[in-house]
């Protein structure tokens, strides 16, 4: 596990050794901050809990979108720059490589998401919101972001081009979001299946209201596990070509 930790740390630090990490962090924080002022706080009088719920809804969208860009280079960049043999010839298994890189990216996501906490804290100080609501909201955002990062890690394992990795991730992530629409219009029992598969609507809504359900946590961990497993299989398959 020490090796996985080392890989995660290197990946995390690498975000700050290039412009990419700073650009992603700056854009993410600027857009979340602007959106908070314009959309979340605007629109007339609201209860504090409604404002916080709105904040987490908006934050979840930005987090999903930026997760794709955080994860695009995780494996694709290694191939692009020719550093993959360094990892592939080490005693690390492909699963360890995927896990280490994913954890490094998750740590970066955690850091930039944590930097938004001053916004709901303002509501908490000036209004009436429980700490539990904030914790539940951030847990939901991190689970959703973590799931999108896993999709992005898979996208990054498919190709050596970071741009293509973004399109692959968006190609998978967009239907996962839009499944809730199919769930609304499809007949039974397909509507239940689509609603359950949708990554955002059914599973994220309870978190933004301050509720934590085990079934939603299980869902997000299942998505993370599935796509990290798929990314590992992609890496393994390259040895057979």
């Amino acid at each position: 596990m020490r090796e996985v930790g080392l890989l995660a740390r290197r990946e995390f630090v690498a975000f700050f050794r290039s412009a990419q990490g700073y650009v992603i962090a700056a854009l993410y924080l600027a857009m979340v901050g602007l959106d908070f002022n314009l959309r979340v706080l605007g629109g007339g009088a609201k209860f504090s809990s409604e404002v916080v719920s709105g904040f987490f809804f908006e934050l979840s969208g930005f987090t999903m979108f930026f997760s794709v860009f955080i994860s695009m280079g995780l494996i694709a960049r290694e191939r692009e720059t020719g550093t993959m043999p360094l990892l592939s010839t080490s005693p690390l298994s492909d699963a360890h490589i995927v896990m280490g890189k994913y954890l490094g990216a998750l740590l970066f996501l955690l850091l930039i998401t944590a930097a938004t906490i001053y916004m709901p804290m303002l509501i908490m100080v000036h209004g009436k919101v429980s700490a539990g609501h904030l914790l539940a909201g951030y847990l939901g955002v991190l689970l959703l972001g973590g799931a999108t990062l896993a999709v992005g890690t898979f996208g990054s394992a498919v190709t050596r081009s970071q741009i293509v990795a973004v399109f692959v991730s968006l190609g998978i992530g967009t239907p996962l979001v839009l499944f809730w629409l199919l769930g609304r219009y499809a007949d039974r029992p397909l509507n239940d299946v689509f609603s359950y598969l949708a990554i955002h609507n059914l599973h994220f809504s309870p978190f933004r209201s301050g509720k934590v359900h085990l079934r939603d946590i299980v869902y997000y961990f299942s998505v993370i596990g599935f796509f990290l497993f798929a990314a590992t299989r992609m890496l393994e398959s390259r040895r057979w070509r």
């Binding site: 020490r2 550093t83 043999p85 360094l86 990892l87 080490s90």
Partner: peptide, 18 residues
């Protein structure tokens, strides 16, 4: 296969670790 942004000794320590 080198991580160009790293310093030589840090890079070797990382490789030794993994």
């Amino acid at each position: 296969p080198l991580y160009l942004e790293m310093r030589v000794a840090d890079f070797l320590a990382f490789v030794a670790g993994i």
